[in-house]
Design a protein around this nucleic acid. Structure first.
Lengths: 214, 214
DNA sequence: CGCCCTGCTGAACAAACGTTTAATGTTCTG
DNA sequence: CAGAACATTAAACGTTTGTTCAGCAGGGCG
């Protein structure tokens, strides 16, 4: 009997192979036969366990999102440096999950909305707490800011390969992630512009949007 | 005879249909037959014009990247508010191209590297200019900062649907893009944190990375 | 023992895929 | 007008896709 909890069962092996395949080639690009071969089983068994390709997809969705949420919950309340260390520690081990999450978020699958909402809500709550603690500046549009902080947190995961390539690596290494910590925090605590010429120019442009004549 | 310049030829219609299909369903998910039907031609004609699905892909790559670069070049040197207005003006008209670019950047296609490199290079040059003009703060790691500014510029395009959904829309509207201008510029000119507790904590953690005992 | 589940497989299925081939209009050219 | 060159198609090909089906091994239970 298949119990949801214990792992390493055949069912779990299939699911893990599917996560890798979907993450690498996308849902449409990965075939049941390839997944079955990677898991060392027959294609029919995949259907037997998950009902079909769509069922396999939602099982993967649930598992990846679930373990991501568990990780997130486990680290809630931990110190910032502990979170950082945990995130850096095995990027490689969780790489298939990251691949899968990235694919989810751009493929508009059914579970992607739920995942993004959870991330956005988490970011909003975090920012609210920090605002209450007096750690934040006065924000012009807190909700939109929270949305962009969420986007900016996901961006390096979505484009991890390009980010790595820009620094001569071919995948995201712990060193690269460590190196990116300071610049990101620098941006978030003091920005990169020395004065507010761009900001006030934008304010002007938005408040009286003049059109250029012929 | 097919001339590269003038548009609305059958070849161009096929290519445009392919851009829409690839952007929506991904390269593997879109079929030649569907593209041919959307373009109002037979599947065989697609092969005749582009040599096959791969040829069609690279033709789309070239066209989308090419017109993107042309747009970018056309706006080089324009005022910031002019760039903003141009970018906002017809998000809807360029939506298929945005879909396609987003898919390119996460699908690791052959032309994606070239595109990202161009974007990254452009960002680095822009930041260098602004640094020379004294508009930038002193940056801890200018290259990594430039990489993240590039990522952050692309992020709202990659996750445009989620961003829109967070504000009750189902696609990226000009209003949403306008509304996001101020929060983003706010972040880039002064950050969101009131003090540097996170930044200095990260500096400490990176310079003496203590491990937590058992 | 016999029975029935459950995990699992090989073979086969219809559909969809990208591509090829041969043929038909269509258009330009000498 | 003949003929080459191009645009276009219907039909078929071989492959791969997701899925179905009948059946085999094996362990718990009467």
């Amino acid at each position: 009997m298949r119990s949801e909890g214990d792992d390493l069962t055949t069912r779990a092996r299939i699911r893990d192979a599917a996560i890798v395949a979907f993450g690498r080639r996308g849902f449409a690009g990965a075939s049941l036969r390839e997944i079955a071969k990677d898991a060392g089983v027959s294609p029919a068994l995949v259907v037997h366990h998950f009902g079909g390709k769509d069922g396999l997809r939602s099982a993967c969705d649930d598992f990846v999102v679930g373990s991501f949420m568990a990780d997130k919950e486990r680290l809630t309340g931990a110190s910032a440096s502990a979170m950082m260390r945990a995130a850096l520690e095995d990027v490689e081990g969780r790489m298939p999950h990251l691949d899968y999450l990235a694919r989810m978020l751009v493929d508009d699958g059914p579970a992607a909305d739920e995942l993004f909402d959870a991330l956005y809500r988490g970011t909003r709550e975090m920012l609210d707490q920090q605002a209450d603690a007096g750690l934040l500046r006065q924000l012009d549009d807190p909700e939109m800011t929270a949305a962009y902080v969420t986007l900016y947190g996901i961006a390096p995961i979505l484009m991890r390969r390009q980010l790595a390539r820009a620094f001569g690596e071919d995948t995201l290494t712990p060193e690269l992630m460590a190196r990116s910590t300071l610049p990101v925090l620098e941006l978030f605590t003091q920005g990169i512009y020395a004065d507010d010429h761009l900001l006030s120019a934008a304010r002007d442009a938005l408040h009286r949007p003049e059109r250029s004549g012929p």
